[in-house]
């Protein structure tokens, strides 16, 4: 498991999430994403994966890319990966965030 904190930037207008929400399952080839608001304004990611050694960095990139693309700030993400492909990860993150806005 590792923890990443992306500091808030001041240049762009960001959207905040307001609720706790989840998307995905714990089944093989899927990923469970839980998102919750935090007060710090940062993006905090806690990632666990069965393929952490091989793909930990890539999974992290995909998640953070999606969060920034959606313009979200002040979010804590808990991701429990069971070997999901990139587009699955992206879809699960997007759904979780849309449920949390």
């Amino acid at each position: 498991m590792f923890l990443i904190i992306v500091e808030k930037s001041n240049e762009v207008i960001y959207i905040k999430i307001t609720k706790i929400a989840k998307a995905g399952t714990l089944e093989s080839n899927d990923i469970l994403i839980m998102v919750m608001p935090n007060d710090s304004g940062n993006i905090e990611l806690e990632l666990e994966s069965i393929v952490m050694q091989q793909f930990g960095d890539v999974i992290e990139q995909v998640i953070l890319h999606k969060v920034k693309e959606m313009g979200i700030e002040g979010i804590t993400i808990k991701a429990q990966d069971k070997g999901a492909l990139d587009y699955t990860i992206g879809a699960r993150v997007e759904t979780a965030i849309k449920r949390a806005i």
């Binding site: 706790i20 399952t25 714990l26 469970l32 839980m34 919750m36």
Partner: peptide, 18 residues
């Protein structure tokens, strides 16, 4: 197991239990 647990976690979230 993962199907059962995922289903229960879904239910918990729908009840506002995280």
């Amino acid at each position: 197991t993962s199907i059962l647990i995922s289903a229960l976690i879904d239910k918990l979230f729908s009840q506002g239990i995280f």
